[in-house]
């Protein structure tokens, strides 16, 4: 895989639209966009583990929440400003992800999923119960500097960090490291015969993924000016899994599209419709039944099929273009 002009152009167009969006739309939509951007970083970094390494982690909400708590606790106990907290969030979340990964990658499949879930619940319980340190289950406030109270300022901070994080993940996915991960995903046994240290690669992927999930959580906590234990609860761990599956785990931007769909849908359903969980259940059901490869995976397959059909009918047309 290589960086092509077309893909770069596409990415640049999206980023450009986002950069000018504060001038195109009002404040309320910027808030929805920020939620979307944060979900994109969370889902894309999650997919380094699921689509990248082929490991089903069911505890990523823990790293997301740890990111938010990094900001809140550094502020509450050491008086460090929000930006320092956001900068340190990948380290804190990454260290926890590393520890969990070291203990879990020896397992596979369902056992790996259950153990990541168990560790996530452990972290959740500590945060929810340690009243004197974390403020317990009603959360702990994050004070945002006045400069970032201006919505556009916080939007650009979010945009910059999310674009940086997604680019980083894209580079990782397209590096030899990413290729080795794919080899491991497809056939761990053969990969180890080739000489790859399978566990080491999996631990590394899990740690990077956890660290960047922590950044997403730090941005989310700062946006809502609060870190809550429910951010780490196991039901939240389903979010990136659903987003990645809905968008398609084998396309790099699949989870991002899934994240956008879910966040916007969740927002409007919660705002304007009754029975949000019912609507959600139906959407997930339809996606799983009708689009097993996710929105992006299915769309890509359709495009390839159409192009192949087209090129068979007029094989010279592509070369004939000026």
């Amino acid at each position: 895989m290589q960086i092509t002009a077309k893909s770069l152009a596409g990415f640049a167009i999206v980023v450009f639209i986002l950069v000018v969006s504060p001038y195109l739309t009002d404040e309320s939509n910027l808030f929805v966009l920020m939620d979307v951007l944060i979900a994109i970083l969370f889902a894309t970094s999650y997919n380094l583990v699921l689509g990248g390494a082929g490991l089903l982690s069911f505890g990523h909400a823990a790293y997301f929440g740890l990111g938010a708590y990094t900001v809140a606790l550094l502020q509450a106990h050491l008086g460090l400003p929000m930006l320092v907290g956001i900068a340190l969030s990948p380290i804190v979340a990454g260290v926890f992800a590393l520890l969990v990964a070291l203990l879990t990658v020896r397992l596979s499949g369902m056992y790996f999923a259950m153990l990541t879930l168990a560790f996530a619940q452990l972290i959740y319980t500590v945060i929810a119960e340690w009243y004197s340190f974390t403020g317990g289950d009603n959360g702990i406030p994050i004070t945002v500097p006045d400069y970032f109270f201006v919505t556009a300022h916080y939007f650009y901070l979010t945009l910059g960090i999310v674009v940086g994080g997604v680019l980083l993940l894209w580079l990782i996915g397209n590096s030899p490291f990413g290729a080795a991960l794919h080899a491991i995903r497809e056939n761990p046994q053969r990969a180890s015969f080739v000489g790859l240290n399978v566990k080491l690669y999996q631990v590394a992927a899990f740690t990077i993924s956890g660290a960047l999930s922590g950044v997403a959580g730090a941005l989310s906590g700062s946006l809502h000016q609060m870190a809550f234990p429910s951010m780490l609860y196991w039901t939240e761990s389903a979010q990136p899994v659903l987003m990645a599956l809905a968008g398609g785990i084998h396309a790099f931007f699949g989870p991002a599209v899934g994240a956008a769909i879910f966040t916007v849908l969740n927002f409007f359903v919660a705002s304007y419709a009754g029975y949000p969980l019912l609507v959600f259940g139906v959407v997930v059901l339809v996606l799983v039944m009708a689009l097993p490869e996710g929105v992006v995976g299915t769309f890509r397959r359709w495009l390839i099929r159409r192009r192949d059909a087209g090129s068979r009918a007029a094989p010279a047309s592509r070369d004939a273009r000026p």
Binding site: G10, F11, V14, F299
Partner: peptide, 12 residues
């Protein structure tokens, strides 16, 4: 893949 990326961008 190039087509995919472009369509990705469009979808986003």
């Amino acid at each position: 893949l190039p087509i995919t990326r472009r369509t990705m961008a469009l979808a986003t």
